[in-house]
């Protein structure tokens, strides 16, 4: 099995890790680097729990090979601290078990930065790639909408 050392930039830290070519980014982030906030849920892109941000775009890390992420700027949930959307998730009780939460937050954070005036259908097109089984999604909707409002206010 071919393997080599790659350099990854995650949350503004540099990591030199020994990976096999077929290791997914999800595997490397969790098992090699120990950033376990990124969650495995299906390993085939269905649930969105493993969503991270790569060069400004939300990506499911189970669908990307580690070697593809070299020289890219990776942000995981651990890279977000007290952001508008995290505060809104707490405020609106937009999580229960918390397992899908990092994925929703990564995705929602992307939404509020890329689409600050997102319509309902735009919100849906972003968030429908993630699954939550505990809430009925209403609290997540409220949190994302509150984050959109507050973010625009903060940026004014």
């Amino acid at each position: 099995m071919t393997s080599r050392i790659v350099t990854l930039s995650i949350n503004n830290d540099q990591y030199h890790v020994h990976v096999r070519n077929i290791d997914t980014l999800l595997f490397t982030i969790r098992e090699k680097i120990g950033l376990t906030g990124t969650k495995p849920g299906c390993l085939n892109g269905d649930c969105g729990a493993c969503t991270v941000n790569i060069n400004g775009e939300a990506i499911k890390s189970c669908l990307m090979l580690t070697v593809e992420a070299e020289n890219k700027c990776i942000t995981t949930i651990e890279g977000l601290q007290d952001t508008t959307i995290q505060k809104a998730f707490i405020e609106k009780f937009a999580f229960q078990c918390g397992y899908c939460t990092p994925g929703f937050i990564m995705n929602g954070n992307d939404l509020i930065h890329n689409e600050p005036n997102a319509s309902d259908s735009m919100i849906k097109s972003y968030l429908e790639s993630n699954i939550c089984r505990c809430t009925g999604y209403q609290e997540i909707e409220e949190a994302v909408k509150e984050a959109l409002t507050n973010n625009n206010y903060d940026n004014r």
């Binding site: 969790r30 098992e31 120990g34 950033l35 376990t36 906030g37 990124t38 969650k39 495995p40 995981t76 949930i77 651990e78 977000l80 601290q81 995290q86 998730f89 707490i90 999580f95 918390g98 397992y99 939460t101 990092p102 937050i105």
Partner: peptide
């Protein structure tokens, strides 16, 4: 459990590596 859960630091079984 809010702070840990929204920051990805809440530990679940598979996170013990």
């Amino acid at each position: 459990d809010a702070i840990e859960k929204v920051h990805g630091t809440a530990k679940y079984t598979a996170d013990y590596i």
